[in-house]
Write a protein that binds this DNA or RNA. Sequence first.
RNA 1: GCGCCUCUAGCUCAACGGCAGAGCAACGGACUCUUAAUCCGCAGGUUCUGGGUUCGAAUCCCAGGGGGCGCACCA
Length: 370
Amino acid sequence: MRVDAWTLLAEARRAFPDKWHGLTDTDTRYRQRYVDLWVTEEARATFRLRSRLISLTRRFLEARDYVEVETPILHPIPGGATAQPFVTHHNTLDVDLYLRVAPELYLKRLVAGGMERVYEIGRVFRNEGLSPRHNTEFTMLELYEAYGDYHVHMALLEELVAHLATELVGGTKLTYQERELDLTPPWRRATMSDLVEERIGVRVDITTPIDDLRSLCDEHGVPWKPDQGPGKLLLELYEKTTEASLWDPVFVIDYPAEVSPLSRPHREVQGLVERFEAIVGGRELCNGFSELTDPDDQRSRFEDQARLKASGDAEAMSVDHDYLRALEYGLPPTVGLGVGIDRLVMLLADQPNIREVILFPTLRPEVGLE
RNA sequence: GCGCCUCUAGCUCAACGGCAGAGCAACGGACUCUUAAUCCGCAGGUUCUGGGUUCGAAUCCCAGGGGGCGCACCA
């Protein structure tokens, strides 16, 4: 080798980690991603996969005539999900604003305005606990389609996930955390009641007397409160006894209306709504439903939520009068779906922790760094 | 918020009540052989912090801090 000339492009004033062992301290990896990306090939691969996944998702939806939109992140009224929002303040307007917990209500305003297929991929913020599956801010894909019902979006979602798996990991049969997982459509559809029955061996549904539900909760160590109705108890039973035991993809369908303030009533069963969640690898991947389009029904559901909020439920929604006004102009039958992009990336990148798929995850601020 | 585990050189780790060490990286030199590993040399520490026990603490105890996992909350 013969050097004719050389120029110093950048100076490394700090020593890099061990070339062979790399970084094992996850705290350092997450705080100093600029070092992690240098030394951890797996991290580079994960974030490349994430980028491709989002790109493929856009192309998939655009091929189906979905239009990408951007809606406000600062909301005057938090809504669209039952979750605690962050509060901030606008100085000039002198009003409190909330970081969005979901884009849902704005996207449905757009459908009411004649945009029949819309989607948004964006950050939402929830002021709640952190875990290997929860980050304070995370990326949600939400999409809405006029003239469809929840069956339409179940089919779309399983097709999207199968497409992404094929493109990104070479097929729909994969291994997640050393366990086989088959994403090949069609996925099973099963009602919440049926799944709980399979698990605990007792038939429960929305008509089960509340005392029976309460004693079942006691029997399975599920805490309950006197003000919780049968729908809430059914959901609690499902979540505590059944959800984590589901592994291969399943659409859990037909949720209690009581816990679904934005969903359309079930076409056949009183007290239920046409809602579904996809559980994959024991984890919720998406949440969707035929949308509630009746402004009177929506108003009374909002009022129920507002009562919960007044009695101390920090996650309950408020009445959004402008949204009700939009419904009064007429929202066609519509289906909507929200997908946790981070969790989808975890699944396809075979990562067990959400922090592995977010470049700069939320951490306690570092002290003593000056 | 509660419980369990964890924190030693830039990084990966040892020392587990008796003088804080190694490998890699860095730095100086030799070598001109790329796909972790050449050789010689040199340097590197508030053992997370503060107390306590002890003749003696990285090691045992208490409190605090950071992180991980579980529970709770949630997606």
